[in-house]
Design a protein around this nucleic acid. Sequence first.
DNA 1: TTTCATTTTTAGACTAATCTAAAAATAGAA
DNA 2: TTCTATTTTTAGATTAGTCTAAAAATGAAA
Lengths: 221, 221
Amino acid sequence: MELVLSFTEENYLKEIYHLFQESNTPVSTNAIAEVMNTKAASVTDMIKKLSAKGVVSYQKYHGVKISDKGQKAALQVIRKHRLWEAFLVDKLKFNWDEVHDVAEQLEHIKSPLLIKRLDEFLGHPKYDPHGDPIPDENGEFKAKPQAPLSTVENGAEGVVVSVKDASASFLQYVDKMGIYIGAKIRVIEKVEFDGSLEILIDNKRTVFISKEVSENIWITE
Amino acid sequence: MELVLSFTEENYLKEIYHLFQESNTPVSTNAIAEVMNTKAASVTDMIKKLSAKGVVSYQKYHGVKISDKGQKAALQVIRKHRLWEAFLVDKLKFNWDEVHDVAEQLEHIKSPLLIKRLDEFLGHPKYDPHGDPIPDENGEFKAKPQAPLSTVENGAEGVVVSVKDASASFLQYVDKMGIYIGAKIRVIEKVEFDGSLEILIDNKRTVFISKEVSENIWITE
DNA sequence: TTTCATTTTTAGACTAATCTAAAAATAGAA
DNA sequence: TTCTATTTTTAGATTAGTCTAAAAATGAAA
Ligand SMILES: [Mn+2]
Ligand SMILES: [Mn+2]
Ligand SMILES: [Mn+2]
Ligand SMILES: [Mn+2]
């Protein structure tokens, strides 16, 4: 009765976990197709397989919910992804924009001993290079209280805690702006019209960022 | 025109490389089936694919030879396998009998930067935990001159350079006998009847090993 | 409460990797 | 040189994951 998921099943489950976390309501077939870069028909097939394995519950035409069993499995994949990202940055001197694609591969390596030892080798890190929390062996984690820059008030101040887009293009842009995990940000002005922001970084540099960018940079409350 | 091999194609090619090295004659379908734990019919199918990609040359009914292109590709997989084994032992404190299965997975991770950095992180190791040489980025490597214990004369002496079986059961047995890479071995007596050996390890301990075991332990000449 | 745009599922095909069973080719013994 | 045991290939299925096109269900507007 041991749960074994394929490479592909793990990827679907991980995305379903994230989507379910965001809304706490059943996840639609189309939403999954979107993030997985596949077609709705493929998603329907996969959902049936995941449902048969008990990691999601599925009501035809009404989307999927992740089960406790599925949640546990998803969190172990996420744990591996983030531990590997930490390894790549801390030990192999990768930049934070170079790690995601490699971690997408490494997260599927099956070896409990490897993850245990990697975690020890890294000193049990609590956060990955993007500020995301690393679940422990039981799937437990604690995210720092945080809010997207896009929702804070004029004049508000905080420290960058995490970034929510791991794409190389986004992270390289963030680098160029002088923004990093731990940077001190003050919102100078929020433009009503388009939601763009003028911000002061580390009391030194003023930059303008779009609403879209500000939604992906989260600071302490 | 860039060569892309699937996970499975890489595994076939690696084994074809090893088999071709051993004999320097065309490798038979059955020989491949044996080491790949598949059936001859599956091998024939795969050989056609590898041939279409130019990594092997194939004469129907007369076996396959690996091409230069194939050799290069195989050596890069072998390089990754051995680098990961070195990482697991040197950094994550794995025993030498615990690394092979994990390395079988890790060797397929696609990221030139990862391998470059891993190699640097490990200090450009020349040999893996089993004494096998690690090819460099150009596929070049130098194995130490060595011969299997089974072929040396009575009274011969040497230092263990490598072991040729990476299975956990073999390596654990080798451990128990007190044999390791670097151990000094003297052949006390070779039994004509079954080829078994009585050997002295590090001038301290005398043990008996079968012919089969002695074929997998290689010492300096 | 009916209509219809949108979403979801089904049907049928395709590719990669595998299998079994049968046919074909090879090579060594007679 | 012929026979035949063995090896190899082909034929036809199967499974996982994907697709397109068509059918079915949903739900919100009229
Ligand atoms: Mn990531
Ligand atoms: Mn991350
Ligand atoms: Mn190995
Ligand atoms: Mn090895």
